[in-house]
């Protein structure tokens, strides 16, 4: 059943990342982070970006770690890793394109 864990890893990472970023967003809006500057951007954007980028790196590591076999178990594990990566990439993209607390 190790392959099932491998298959679930990517989507699970997405779920965790999605929750973390959504929580950071809510907390940041409540505590006024957008007006705290942090380097070239605000603390709010920086916190979410940091989590997002770290998550994407983890996703890539996960994808790298997946077995290369062409049996069904191997293919399912790679599919899971890809689903997680694409989901994290697409659903959290708004961090860089929309305004944070408006």
């Amino acid at each position: 059943m190790r392959w099932a864990m491998g298959m679930l890893a990517g989507p699970t990472l997405w779920a965790v990342l999605f929750v973390v970023v959504y929580a950071l967003h809510g907390i940041g809006c409540a505590w006024g982070w957008p007006s705290v500057s942090f380097g070239p951007t605000s603390l709010h954007i920086a916190a979410m970006m940091g989590a997002w980028v770290a998550g994407l790196v983890l996703h890539l590591v996960l994808l790298w770690q997946m077995p290369k076999g062409h049996d069904r178990e191997g293919r399912l594990q790679r599919a899971g890793a890809w689903i997680g990566l694409v989901a994290s990439g697409v659903t959290l993209l708004p961090i860089v394109v929309t305004s944070s607390c408006g």
Partner: peptide
């Protein structure tokens, strides 16, 4: 806020 909506909008489309 619009950004939170956008997360869910993207997920809904995906």
């Amino acid at each position: 806020p619009h950004m939170a909506l956008a997360f869910f909008s993207a997920a809904s489309a995906l």
